[in-house]
């Protein structure tokens, strides 16, 4: 399993060396790194595919300014597994194990931008699982939400909902 993943990571490592194939699609991350992928991978990314379709397949270099070279390999890895029909619970658990909450959020936004429904659904659940026991303050910070309740309103609401504030994890995790 681990070998399989690492070999895949190698296979999608940074481009330029790939001599053949006019068929491959070049995905350019926001920090200008080119990733060459098979057209089948591009098909998984609806945003990329519709871009290709709109230009009748003439353009095969797709700029993805919102996606970093850190996130793109994960997205490609997931798409490859998806094509191979190898998305299992084990793979998914392994896939997110190495990601902290900020990375999961970035990947979630990338999946949305690229319109990869399966990955988006999966990451929605991952984020939900990770914030389920978090405090209200953590959630505000995580999503960059401003608290627009007055202190009185919030105190009243918290009192009414006091039973839901039991068993909340402390915030002191070393996540950025």
């Amino acid at each position: 399993m681990a070998e399989e993943v690492s070999s895949q990571m190698n296979s999608l490592s940074i481009s330029e060396t790939n001599p053949s194939s006019s068929a491959t699609i070049s995905l350019v991350s926001g920090d200008d790194i080119v990733f060459k992928v098979e057209p089948t991978i591009a098909k998984e990314m609806e945003t990329v595919q519709s871009f290709i379709d709109e230009t009748d397949g003439k353009i095969t270099t797709i700029p993805l300014p919102n996606i970093s070279s850190h996130d793109l390999p994960y997205v490609i890895e997931y798409c490859e597994k998806s094509i191979a029909g190898k998305i299992t619970k084990e793979f998914e658990a392994e896939f997110v194990k190495k990601l902290n909450n900020e990375e999961v959020k970035e990947l979630f936004l990338a999946a949305n931008y690229l319109n990869i429904k399966k990955l988006l659904d999966f990451l929605s659940q991952v984020i939900a699982d990770r914030i389920a026991n978090k405090s209200v303050e953590y959630v505000r910070r995580y999503f960059g939400i401003e608290n627009d309740f007055t202190p009185e309103e919030e105190a009243k609401l918290r009192e009414e909902l006091a039973w839901t504030f039991t068993g909340v994890d402390p915030d002191d995790e070393d996540e950025n």
Partner: peptide, 13 residues
């Protein structure tokens, strides 16, 4: 339970 707690996040939530 989390949803009910997160009603306190903001008016939008």
């Amino acid at each position: 339970k989390s949803l009910i707690r997160f009603q306190c996040v903001s008016k939008q939530w």
